[in-house]
């Protein structure tokens, strides 16, 4: 019984992974959607990035990845620093029944 449910779960996973590929097949042909950011009512940094989006998407992509990575690691540092100050013992943990 247990084995069966496991197998079913596995097969379901397998089918599921294939679903997007199935969605790919067929369907009506259509044109690309183009998005233009409306820079007219933006100022400052937002204007800069929205303009970059319109003008030079590659540079925008590099910026996006860099900034995301930087913000991620920056926040990681800051939060670790703050959590250290709380005086909680975060290195060891009591046995947890997981």
């Amino acid at each position: 019984m247990k084995k069966l449910s496991k197998k079913v779960l596995g097969i379901l996973t397998a089918i599921f992974v294939w679903l997007p590929a199935l969605a790919w097949a067929g369907g009506p042909k259509a044109v690309d959607l183009v998005v233009v950011a409306d820079t007219r009512r933006l100022t400052g940094v937002q204007h800069y990035f929205a303009n970059l989006y319109n003008e030079n998407i590659l540079l925008f992509a590099i910026w996006a990845v860099l900034l995301t990575a930087a913000l991620g690691s920056g926040l990681g540092f800051i939060m670790d620093f703050i959590m250290e100050r709380t005086g909680l013992d975060l290195k060891s943990r009591k046995l947890v029944e997981h």
Binding site: V34, V35, Q46, F49, Y53, I57, L58, F60, A61, I62, A64, V65, L67, T68, L71, G72, L75, G76, I78, M79
Partner: peptide
């Protein structure tokens, strides 16, 4: 993924930052 979705123009940087800050905390 971030790179390719940005190249395709389907990313909202402002939202990424807002969510990321929330997630870090």
């Amino acid at each position: 993924g971030a790179f390719t979705y940005t190249l395709k123009g389907r990313i909202e940087l402002v939202a990424v930052f807002v969510m990321l800050s929330g997630a870090a905390i």
